[in-house]
Amino acid sequence: MKIDKSLISRIEHLARLQLSDTERTQIQGDLNNILEMVSKLDELNTDGIEPLVYMSDTVNSFRPDEVTNQVERSDALKNAPDSNEQFFKVPRVM
């Protein structure tokens, strides 16, 4: 599996990154090396093996339907790069 220029660009977009040409070439190379390393997994026969998804035995972890633990709006907005008294502000979507 080799990652080519167009695939790298697509991944970049999905990840919302905008790499410089040097960074992109570097990372493209790195990814291909890593995938080379990862291809070792193909040596293992995993037919019929259940994927391991959950690392704890816990099931049915629920909380009661109660209103609790809210924060004040001023706290909610205090780390915002741009906001007014009520809302987070972002540059217009279009």
Partner: peptide, 10 residues
């Protein structure tokens, strides 16, 4: 609500 911004309410 604003010509240059979108406002977000969570």
């Amino acid at each position: 609500l604003d010509p240059n911004h979108s406002f977000i309410d969570l």
